[in-house]
Amino acid sequence: MFLQGSFNTISVAALIQTLCHERRAVQIEAWRTDASAHICLSDGLVIAATCEGTEGADAIVKLMRWPNGLFRVGQLPEHFAPTMAADPESILLEAARQRDEFMA
């Protein structure tokens, strides 16, 4: 583990964008009282995502709706098998769009 904190300090979007900009091969473990999430990043892409029983891009959409939560960032396990390869920017913008339309 090399980084940990709260989503009150850094948003989900900013955390994912920063790590993807750096092209880190990392996993983000996130949790709050009644839920958890797991996001894997490598070479600037989201390569796996789960959140509250949801997988893929929808998992990040769900995670972005958390009002709070904690996270820790660690090294990606060796021989990790990706389940997706998605540009984080598109996912984050799509999540923001869905959130805006949900709130409208």
């Binding site: 979007a13 984050l92 913008l93 769009r97 805006d100 709130m103």
Partner: peptide, 9 residues
């Protein structure tokens, strides 16, 4: 109403 999106961008 796309305020969150604009802020993110």
């Amino acid at each position: 109403y796309y305020d969150t999106s604009r802020r993110l961008i």
